[in-house]
Design a protein around this nucleic acid. Structure first.
Lengths: 158, 158
DNA sequence: CTAAACCTTGTAGCAACTACAGCTTCAAGT
DNA sequence: ACTTGAAGCTGTAGTTGCTACAAGGTTTAG
């Protein structure tokens, strides 16, 4: 817990947390990671604590937490004495979003599957996919989970 | 099908396709919508064809298709004689992405639910949420669906 | 005819990175 | 000890898909 040796380069750190050095520098710049110790030549050196912190950040980001949410989570975990109500609140809020995304995504999956089975190698003229997108019924299920503007909030899956 | 009267203003068009005038102008600029006819004073005027096209674009975007994918779909639907193999391919490719996102998101939902039930108002020190994020097992399921770099591709749910 | 509501262009901003360019430093081999 | 090549440095600009101004011009309803 206390024997932190700063021996890891930024590239090694990035590799261990499955991201890129640029991302590490970016996180430092925006204050998610503390300023690293430097070698005489000015290169960053990290310890295991940084690996843990960065891994936490990457996991939280992968989970879909925004950078600001991650910042809050980190601030909280930096003060282990505070009650975790807030952490709970963030998680609950997040769960709601995740569940509505899940609904929309699974509706989309069903449509795509329907598209693919129905588009049996004809011409575009008769292609159900274009049709399904044009007047898709998903709008109904979109409105079913709250009615407000969520059109922009869908995961991009290019 | 052929009686197109250019009577709709950009605001009206945007309202009908559930987006904003800025978005319409943006789509025009990047070439998803054709240049609109103008009034003497220089304002854009549209017909029902534009409503359909824009609605298609918005739906496709809501479905999670990238702008480039939408561009391809539009190009295809503009040539109804071509075989729809390509449309099919795009949809299949898309389906894969959607399914992996679904897996990740539902794993996340389970974790969040677990977090919330286990974080029963204690202190951050004992908070399972931080812990779960720190060394979550989702990494395993991440690797299960292909093993390649998908970490960046997760929906943001802030 | 006037005033509100709408439209115009152009530019800048947002998140969350990512990618350069042009240079310096480090580590490993000889 | 010296060289070489990979990796690191800073700073800036690009990415995607919009969104938000500012500073004016046009339309339309009363």
């Amino acid at each position: 817990m206390s024997s932190i040796r700063q021996i890891i380069s930024i590239g090694e750190l990035a590799r261990r947390a499955d991201c890129k050095p640029e991302t590490v520098r970016y996180y430092e710049r925006i204050g998610l990671l503390r300023d690293a110790l430097r070698t005489e030549g000015g290169q960053r050196r990290y310890g295991e604590d940084a690996v843990r912190r960065l891994t936490f950040i990457r996991h939280a980001r992968d989970f879909g937490f925004s950078v600001e949410a991650v910042r809050e989570l980190l601030a909280m975990s930096d003060q282990p004495d505070m009650p975790c109500q807030e952490v709970d609140a963030i998680a609950r809020h997040h769960l709601e979003k995740v569940e509505s995304h899940l609904q929309r995504l699974s509706a989309l999956r069903d449509e795509l599957q329907r598209m693919i089975t129905q588009c049996a190698g004809g011409k575009v003229e008769n292609c159900r996919i274009i049709e399904v997108i044009s007047d898709h019924q998903l709008c109904i299920s979109e409105n079913a989970h709250g009615g407000s503007r969520l059109a922009q909030g869908v995961p991009s899956v290019d």
